[in-house]
Every structure is written in structure tokens, then in C-alpha cells.
Design a protein around this nucleic acid. Structure first.
Lengths: 330, 330
DNA sequence: CTGAAAGCGCTTACAG
DNA sequence: CTGAAAGCGCTTACAG
């Protein structure tokens, strides 16, 4: 294992440069080719990629910084990126920032140190520090999931998704609607979806929206729903949740309290997680094409790496999915 | 960005070695320290990690080869490994083999080329080719999820899990039980769980097991369940599924056919996915500690990398979780 | 505390 | 087609 190109050259009775040429597909006579092949075979020589990269001054690696790995959106997106990148000979280096913004910054510098060719940042928030780091490292970066004027961004049309969902719930006759959102620091999920929803509500005079804020976890959804149920007043007829996870939590809370869905309470989510289809009742939600987004992000970063032009802002469509969790009122 | 240690040295008016010493925490006078700090600050110097690794002859990277990224077990395990590794200054390089065994082999060589210090192979099958590659690269490798006599292995006690599940379902009075398994090529999931289950069944004279084989996907579970339902004979009173995913598929199929769970059909899974708790009825399953397994695998590989002794075989316990999806017969 | 020099393993013009 | 030599950016004894 500890063979170097010099060892191989020595054993094959040729010069290092000849071995290198052989390795890189340069012209080598048939005889020497065979000798080198044999020696490599015998020794199990594996080139040292550091030395290679040191000369080449670049790698075929793309880095991605994820806020977490263990969520549906994250794992789908990564799988999509990976598939596309691999198809084109790039390798994906995945960094888990564990939902810690300062780790994202660290990761940007780490990746730069490793001479990664490009970075896809799966963003939840974009701070000034992020921007400074992105500028300083001087490597192509794509923001996925959030938008910033100074960085290539790919976002979902969260406003439209919120609006569509609002319109749908209203069209089903609901007028007293709770909205369980998340922190506004997350512009895409916390602000845009809510704004779209509220726009829809504002178009109906008699409609009323009650806003709540929850964490991202299923258990946060359970908690928020419980406190909502315990307020001593008439329950809204529908609760629109900013994510499928929260919606699942709400459904669980409803089950615990004996509130039938959708008969007494309609519930909706956003995301289109696989499980929303198999649970009962099926969850009405908006499907986000995470896997395809991963594909697209991979294509964009490869273009950027090769100095090809890429749209500064890409907006990805979402798709309403109607299932049984929303009741029609008359 | 294109600064090298030589540039910094030049601008700070010192030698390269001094800058290097500064960077690596060696002793440097206060005055020069300040000068160097300032220059680095101004230039935004980022060391080239290839050159560093080339000298150091090793990296603080651990590689992991996963059959897929977008599954609960995979993402949980990776998250666990990552957390523990990062805590100890290692970085995790994740490779997605996309359920293609030959890609796993490729990945082993790729990681070797990159002078990764150790590898955790999330295994589904261990072939001779795997073994040859592991031996050839000469890097510590841990098998996670499957066992092989010649490689450090960490496995779950699948036999016990299967046995416990069988015992439980039998103890609830079920005697006609369908078992939906997976390919026997996957020894842990396809063989051990089934064997454990069958052992339990063999302990009851009047009990009878009907074996089916399904793919790993939820949709495979749906299909298998549908064909099971369509066989014109009395339905078993319980169906034990080799994974939670399959169980979710079976539950969906039952809903579609109007078969109430657990009143007319009890269903169980293996895995302990998060969703099994929030669905209705809650799924009886065996919880596998994926996240903790990731932690443990990380600890083991770090020991191996540092030439510390590690048990050749580690067996991890699983935990039965009783929920509403199993009915008590009398 | 500081610097000159050799070397990590590979690649790449440049001669031959 | 083949080889000698320089260089990629860093680290590490070794002197001073």
C-alpha cells in the first residue's frame, strides 16, 4: 500500500515520468506499458490523490453543507445531488452543520481549504457572516432553499405554495383557520409560506386566520396543537401547518384528544414527505421536488465551476396534493 | 485566495518555516506573531490541505459507504457517526453507493486513494470482492449491519429481535401468522430476523407461519400485502413484516381494502422509524438504535485508526415497542 | 525564537 | 517513446 510512483518506476525499470504518463493515458510503448501494468498489478499501487491535487490545483469534488442529515428534505436533496454529480465524474463531500449556523461558516472555510471546486449550501438562514465567508473563499457557491441577492440562489416558490394551500382550504368552506408557522428567521418557510397563506385569507372577507409558531420537530407540532386545543374557545375548522412534520404532530395530538380528522378538524402540511401518503387519513400537502432540486443544484454548480453562465435566481415549482385530511364544509 | 505560505512569509518579512510554525502552534515571538496574524487577516490566507496531507501522510477523515442516503436507518446512522467523529476532530466523508454493490467496491478504492484514515461500511451484503478490496487497501474497515469473520463487524441482534417479536405476537394469541421477509442475500434482515421469528413459532405446536418475500420499499409492501389479501383463503390474524417500511405498506394496503387494523389484522414491523409512533394505530415494532450505532461505529473506527484494540464483533441490542397495531385474541 | 534546505508524491514542459 | 529536473504548497529536523 505504501508504494509511490518512484517504487513502481524502479520496479518496472523506467522513469517516474513514464509511469505518470502511463497513469494519465499518455503515449507509452507497448512493452513498457505491459511492464508497468504488471508491477502495478502486483504491488496494488494506489496513487496518492493529495499529490495529484497539489499539482492539478483543483479537485473534482463538490461540497454540500446541510443543516441536518436526518430529515426527509435533506436526505432526498442530497441523494439527488449525489446522483447527478456522480454521473458527471464529480464526488460529493457532505458536511453536516447540525443546525448550527456557525458550523456552516466553519464548513465553508473547511471546504475551501480542501480545494473543493464548488459548494451547495442548503440554507435556512443567510447572515452577513455567511456572505462574508462566501466572498472570502472565492469558490462558486449556490444557495439552495433561500435567496440572497449576491449569491446564486435556488428557491421553491413558497409564497405560491402558501397561497395555493390557503385558496384550497378556503375553497373547501373553511373560514376559521389556524396557521402553525415557524421562526421568521427562516425566510422561505417562516415568512413566505405564511404570507402566501395570509394573502389567500385576505381575499375572503369572512375568513379569519389565527397564527401560532412552532419548532420544526414533530414533537413541537404536538405541543403547539395541544396548547391550541386547550384554549377555551371554539376550535378552528382547519389548521394549516408550515411543514409536514408539524402536521404529523398535530394529527397525533388530535388522535390523543379524540378529535377526529377531518370530521372535526382539517389538517394540511407542506413538503410532500413519503409518509403523508400512507398515513390515514392521507395528508393534504404541497409536494416539494427535493430530489429534482438536488439534481438541478448539481447541474448548476457544475456549470458554475466550469465558468458557464447560470441564472442568478432559480424558482422551483411546487405541487398541491389533495388527500383526505381536509373536509368539505357546507 | 491564491496566497501560499510563501506569500505570507514574504509580506510579513519572515521565513516560510516561521509562518508554518505559527500556523501549527509552535513557538513564535510576540512581535512576529502579530505581524503574521495581520497579514493572514488581510490576505484571507487559507492553507492548502493537500500540501498539508501530503506531508502528514494522513488525514483526519473517516469515510463511510452507504447503500443509500434517503432512508431512516441510513440518515440516522450517518447523523450519529458524524456527531461523534466531529467531536473528536475527524471529518466524515459520505459516499452513496446507490444500492449497487460494485459501487461499494469502487468506493473502497476511492477512499483509499484519498488517504482516508478509516472506513465504515454500512453493509447489506458482504461478497468475496468486498473482502478482497478491504484487504488490498490496507485501511481499517468496520462493517456495520452485517458480520464477516475477517472484518471488524457491528451487528444488531436480529435473531433475538425476530424471536422477541414472534414471542410477543404469539403471546397475544395469534396462531396463523404471515411473515413478509426480504431477500436472503441480506443476511441480517433477510435471514436472521426470519429465523428468530420462526424459532418462536416452532415453540407453539398449534402455530403456523406463512412466508412471503417482498422488496424493501413501501410500495413493495403494498404489493405483497395485496396479493396476500387476494389469495382466496382465510386471512392470517397477524402479519409480521421484516421492516417498518414494509409494515407501512401493508397498513396502507389494508386501509385500501377496508380491512381494519388491528381488529381484523394485526401488523408489526422492525426498525422503530419515527413515523411508526405518529401513525394511527401506532405500529408495534422493534426499535433499532441507529443513531447510537453510528456513535459507536465512530468510536470503534477512531480506536482502530489509532491502533487501539476493538472487539472484533459487537452485537447491539434492540428494544420491543408495543403499540396498538397488535390485537389481543382470546 | 528564527531561517535554509530537504522532502512529501505527483505532473509537466523540455530535451533527447 | 522516454528521462532528468523543476515545481505544486507545506512541514520538519537541523543549525544558529
Amino acid at each position: 500500500m505504501k508504494n509511490t510512483i518512484a517504487d513502481i518506476a524502479h520496479k518496472a525499470g523506467v522513469a517516474k515520468s513514464t509511469v505518470s504518463r502511463f497513469l494519465n493515458g499518455g503515449s507509452v510503448s507497448h512493452a513498457t506499458r505491459r511492464k508497468i501494468e504488471q508491477v502495478i498489478q502486483e504491488t496494488g499501487y494506489i496513487p496518492n490523490s493529495f499529490a495529484q491535487s497539489l499539482k492539478a490545483k483543483k479537485t473534482s469534488m463538490i461540497g454540500t453543507i446541510m443543516p441536518r442529515l436526518d430529515s426527509f428534505s435533506a436526505s432526498q436533496t442530497v441523494a439527488g445531488m449525489d446522483e447527478e454529480l456522480r454521473k458527471h465524474g464529480y464526488q460529493l463531500l457532505i458536511i453536516n452543520a447540525s443546525q448550527d449556523l456557525s458550523r456552516e461558516i466553519e464548513a465553508l472555510y473547511d471546504l475551501a481549504r480542501q480545494k473543493i471546486s464548488g459548494i451547495i449550501l442548503f440554507a435556512t438562514q443567510v447572515t452577513e457572516t455567511h456572505l462574508a465567508a462566501i466572498q472570502e473563499i472565492g469558490i462558486p457557491v449556490i444557495l439552495l432553499g433561500q435567496q440572497h441577492n449576491h449569491v446564486h440562489s435556488m428557491i421553491y416558490n413558497d409564497y405560491a405554495a402558501g397561497y395555493d394551500m390557503g385558496r384550497y382550504v378556503l375553497s373547501m368552506g373553511h373560514r376559521q383557520i389556524a396557521y402553525i408557522g415557524v421562526t421568521e428567521k427562516d425566510v422561505a418557510v417562516g415568512v413566505k409560506r405564511k404570507e402566501g397563506f395570509l394573502k389567500a385569507v385576505s381575499e375572503y372577507d369572512e375568513a379569519e386566520a389565527f397564527l401560532y409558531e412552532s419548532g420544526f420537530k414533530m414533537s413541537d407540532g404536538v405541543k403547539t396543537a395541544c396548547s391550541l386545543f386547550e384554549l377555551n374557545r371554539t376550535l378552528p375548522t382547519a389548521v394549516v401547518c408550515a411543514t409536514d412534520n408539524i402536521a404529523l404532530g398535530v394529527m397525533k395530538a388530535a388522535h390523543m384528544k379524540g378529535i377526529p380528522i377531518p370530521e372535526r378538524l382539517s389538517v394540511t402540511g407542506f413538503g410532500g414527505y413519503d409518509v403523508t401518503e400512507v398515513i390515514h387519513p392521507g395528508l393534504t400537502t404541497v409536494k416539494y421536488g427535493y430530489f429534482q432540486a438536488g439534481h438541478l443544484a448539481a447541474q448548476h454548480i457544475m456549470k458554475l465551476v466550469n465558468d458557464e453562465p447560470v441564472d442568478f435566481l432559480t424558482v422551483m415549482k411546487c405541487e398541491m396534493i389533495h388527500r383526505e385530511s381536509v373536509d368539505k364544509l357546507n
